[in-house]
C-alpha cells in the first residue's frame, strides 16, 4: 500500500493499485488495472478501466472521463458528459450508518 506517490508514467502490466491516499487520473491519463483501492478517493478526468474499484471517499467522474469497473464508494459525483461502460455501482444511502446511531442522550 502506497501512502503518497506521484506516478507520472508507468508502463507494463499492473494488477492492483492500492493507496491510502488519493488517485487522480488527469485529462490524458489512463489507468488500466484489475483492482483499485483508494482510501482518499478518486478523481477521474481521463480513463479508468478496471474490474473492481473501491474508494474511501467520494469518487469524481469528470465530464470527459471514460470509466469502466465495479465501483463501491460512499459517494459519486458524475459530471455531464462522463461515459460509463456497463459497471455495477454500489453507492449506499447512509455510508456511515448514522441512522442506526442512538440520539444524543438516549440510552440503549
Amino acid at each position: 500500500m502506497v501512502g503518497d506517490e506521484h506516478i507520472t508514467k508507468l508502463r507494463g502490466p499492473l494488477k492492483e493499485l492500492k493507496t491510502c491516499g488519493r488517485i487522480t487520473v488527469s485529462k490524458r491519463g489512463r489507468l488500466i488495472v484489475e483492482t483499485i483501492e483508494a482510501h482518499g478517493g478518486i478523481d477521474c478526468q481521463g480513463i479508468i478501466d478496471a474490474k473492481h474499484v473501491l474508494s474511501g471517499t467520494t469518487v469524481i467522474l469528470g465530464p470527459k472521463c471514460n470509466y469502466h469497473g465495479d465501483l463501491t464508494a460512499p459517494g459519486v459525483v458524475m459530471h455531464k458528459g462522463a461515459k460509463v461502460k456497463a459497471s455495477r455501482f454500489a453507492v449506499p444511502e447512509d455510508p456511515l450508518g448514522l441512522t442506526d446511531m442512538p440520539e444524543a442522550g438516549e440510552s440503549k
Binding site: T58, L61, G75, V76, V77, M78, H79, K80, G81, A82, K83, V84, K85, A86, S87, R88, F89, A90, V91, P92, E93
Partner: peptide, 21 residues
C-alpha cells in the same frame, strides 16, 4: 446517454452511460 450524479445520491445497480449505451 448522459448522467449527472450529485454527492449524497445513492445508487445500487448496473450503470451504462454514453451515446452508445
Amino acid at each position: 446517454a448522459k448522467m449527472v450524479m450529485t454527492e449524497g445520491a445513492s445508487f445500487h445497480g448496473m450503470c451504462a452511460v454514453g451515446p452508445d449505451s
